[in-house]
């Protein structure tokens, strides 16, 4: 990765809707170069996806989410990875991390209702042979996601004109 790649990533992480021209003008390079660099970072798997951060409290049918802690008995040859791959394959699993501490996997699980998530944990996760315990924390409210504050208290108090 070059410094130019990093600069492009920094801008896209702030705003994935920046056009190639906008990025090029901010970085002082050509738009075609931005296009080429983004494509090569997609090909290399550095950029995985362009996505959107939603304030779930403002949509008509908000997604219900829960943090699920899993304790795992790792497998002899593949450790945590094989079991992680199996868990990740469920579309209900939004994110999945191996963490230090009193449990092993921390998942963010999504569903339409609390009941959906409860069923998923009981029926799909808890029944996996290597899963020794589960703890589920339903998310009531998210204050910040991916570095973005979810509230609207961002009204500028700057004076419109100041020499």
């Amino acid at each position: 990765m070059t410094q130019s790649d990093q600069n492009i990533i920094d801008l896209l992480q702030k705003n994935a809707r920046f056009s190639n021209e906008d990025i090029a003008a901010q970085l002082g390079i050509e738009a075609i170069e931005v296009d080429t660099r983004i494509q090569s970072m997609l090909d290399a798997g550095i950029i995985r996806q362009f996505t959107t951060i939603i304030n779930e409290t403002k949509v008509d049918s908000p997604t219900t989410k829960a943090l699920v802690e899993l304790s795992i008995r790792p497998e002899r040859n593949t450790g945590y990875d094989a079991i992680a791959h199996r868990i990740c394959s469920y579309p209900e699993v939004e994110s999945h991390h191996l963490v230090s501490g009193t449990y092993d996997f921390l998942l963010v699980v999504c569903g339409k209702t609390h009941k959906d998530i409860a069923h998923f944990v009981f029926d799909k996760l808890a029944t996996i042979e290597n899963v020794t315990s589960t703890t589920t924390h339903f998310i009531f409210k998210s204050y910040k996601e991916h570095g973005v504050l979810m509230d609207d208290h961002n009204e500028s108090t700057r004076l419109a004109i100041m020499p």
């Binding site: 004076l159 419109a160 004109i161 100041m162």
Partner: peptide, 11 residues
Amino acid sequence: GIISLGVGEPD
């Protein structure tokens, strides 16, 4: 309804 570039401080 204006956009002000007349500001004199960081954003």
